[in-house]
Design a protein around this nucleic acid. Sequence first.
DNA 1: CCTTACGTTTACGTAAGCGTAAAGCAGTCG
DNA 2: CGACTGCTTTACGCTTACGTAAACGTAAGG
Lengths: 149, 149
Amino acid sequence: MTTGDERTWTIAEVAEDYDVTLRTIRHYEDVGLLSPERRGTARVFRKRDRVRLGLILRGRRLGFSLDEISTIVNMYDEQPGEAGQLHYLIEQIDVRRRDLEQRRRDLDETLADLADVERRCHEDLARLDGAASGAAGGRADGPAPRRRP
Amino acid sequence: MTTGDERTWTIAEVAEDYDVTLRTIRHYEDVGLLSPERRGTARVFRKRDRVRLGLILRGRRLGFSLDEISTIVNMYDEQPGEAGQLHYLIEQIDVRRRDLEQRRRDLDETLADLADVERRCHEDLARLDGAASGAAGGRADGPAPRRRP
DNA sequence: CCTTACGTTTACGTAAGCGTAAAGCAGTCG
DNA sequence: CGACTGCTTTACGCTTACGTAAACGTAAGG
């Protein structure tokens, strides 16, 4: 019954909630990723739009292009349609899955590498601590402005 | 011992092996991600350079910017240095790790969503198969002006 | 010597993903 | 009746990550 009067949001509220700029939201609309209703000229966001934005941002965090994100989020609200279409969609899902699984492998390898680097850091620190008896003051904690050459 | 005469590669060979263009490799050198030796003007790639390129491409697959990749891969061959520097590095590693862990959450959620969509696809297919005896040709589907080309 | 194959540099082009004015409606508060 | 406030559109600008010529060097082979 109350399907017509759910809560709505303004663009500013959505932007605030999802920590993006108004420009970003409008851009997503420009490229067809979002299509909020209009009350006059103003955009009116409903729950669905927020969910979609959430999916978009998740895709963005994963490093997908807006184009890829577009194909992905559109998978979600694909109508049943005909069989060929469903087969095609399943195929596309498989492609995406393979991609994501490759990413997870990359990600886990990177995490392992980082853990390794960190371990070596701690070893080096221990070595420094052990040999630190000569220096005045054990704290030796400079601001360390040093970075890339 | 034989530390000076390891195998080397040309830019074309590396590009072929890693499936990137020459331009890409040169670009990575431009931005300081790679720094192969030179024999005259020609680039000479050693094993280390290839490993580095591997790391770069892994970062790229993960959706990192070249700038981020730069800080990440440079972590790997950071010299022991002083304590403050090591602490800084450990801190940076932690930042990266948090990022990667967020990505993995995003990734797993996306995979779960895709699995869900796929499941619904199969359900729809089953439904279509079941109801396929009625209409001639099985295509009783009027509306729903369709999607992908 | 000339071609072919491979390498080089310099430099402009481009697509994506927004940033950032500039300028204009629409409601509302005093 | 202004003056805000918050929204809108239009449109040029910027960065990243390369693509894409253009023009030239160098070594091998016919």
